[in-house]
Design a protein around this nucleic acid. Sequence first.
DNA 1: CAGTGGTCTAGACCACTGT
DNA 2: CAGTGGTCTAGACCACTGC
Lengths: 230, 230
Amino acid sequence: MSESPYLLIKRSIADGIATRRYLPGQVLPSEPALCRTFGVARMTVNRAMRELAAEQLVRRVPGVGTFVAEPVAESSLVELRNIADEIAERGHRHSATVFVLAAVTPDDEQRAIFGIAEGPLFHSAILHCENEIPIQFEDRFVAPSVAPDYLQQDFSRMTPSEYLLRVAPVQEVRHDVQAAATPTGIARHLDDKICLLVTRLTWSGGRLATLTRLYYPGGRFRLTERFVPK
Amino acid sequence: MSESPYLLIKRSIADGIATRRYLPGQVLPSEPALCRTFGVARMTVNRAMRELAAEQLVRRVPGVGTFVAEPVAESSLVELRNIADEIAERGHRHSATVFVLAAVTPDDEQRAIFGIAEGPLFHSAILHCENEIPIQFEDRFVAPSVAPDYLQQDFSRMTPSEYLLRVAPVQEVRHDVQAAATPTGIARHLDDKICLLVTRLTWSGGRLATLTRLYYPGGRFRLTERFVPK
DNA sequence: CAGTGGTCTAGACCACTGT
DNA sequence: CAGTGGTCTAGACCACTGC
């Protein structure tokens, strides 16, 4: 399956980038060099490198060489994706730091939008990093009824998205995107004065299940959608 | 530059699909057949078809053949909307000011992404207002081949989106959203230091048709998507 | 100048499908 | 079985860059 030479070469390079054996901006071995290393024809090496370039993992400059690309994070608006999966698909390492994980007493506005008369809400605040670089600050409120064991999870090992997608079937999602000045306190983590703020509401069982504010560094992050019009 | 055989073959097939000369599900000529038609080696045809498959324009089945892909019309959430319509639906008044409408000589990067060897690009810069309040600054580049009469239109009466949707059937759209500091010059019009920058690429006939940068005032604007997960 | 990537050729072998 | 796509080879020519 995956033992075609061009795939082996692709993975070898991709792994080297993921493990930071090759650092952004660094020159990669030339095509003739890779031919010798892997004992294959140049067309085989070329295909591997061409595909890596198409996937934005490397940047090729004719007459100069092939370089490890600066990582440009990317995400989707129309899908509920687990950020750990997205990062893994880019061949990078995900890590999470949990700042808050507790029950809170909702204010009137929260009570209204969650449609609850009384009782607590669960609150979590987590910083997600891609290769140790902060990429998303996640501020989340969860209705206890949809995930009673929310506070017992270890969210440095499994993201809230992953957990919630398992225990609470999402019926409807609403995303709201705006550009904003990064709130002080979050700016400290994201290291960017401007942020992309995605507010995500999910409904489960007819009731609002989660309210999440996702803060992305404005300069380092992109939301991408690709679609075919009807 | 764009006359490499594999690109010619790619475009020939992509055009055939765009113009519905090849219909979804239909079998395309086999690789040996295309070799004879274009007088090239099989590797050249193979690369063209492999890239079309990667772009989801065709579906390849080993041992069977290559077929025109069924267009996977995705969610109505991400839509190509005409801003004038959106404003009208809110019961507000739309107005547009045209700042630029001219042919320009593309730089190397633009030439590369539009895949054109020579000739001009059309450029327009338009400010859209909702009830006289600036809501979107639209900076647009259009390939002349998809809209030869672009420069003759009165875009204070009809938006470029509306015009282009009429004359150039869009095959694919890619949206890229980021938060950014409003470029000086545009900040003057939008009256906001932070903006939501939506970069929209559209493809028609297998070629990049338009590159549009939509600048929205960060504080006054929200992008909203609502959808039901699969 | 030697080195780089971009592209192409004319063969080849393979696994797979439909008949 | 003949036909399909998936992959590979060992050469080749070109335009480009840096020295």
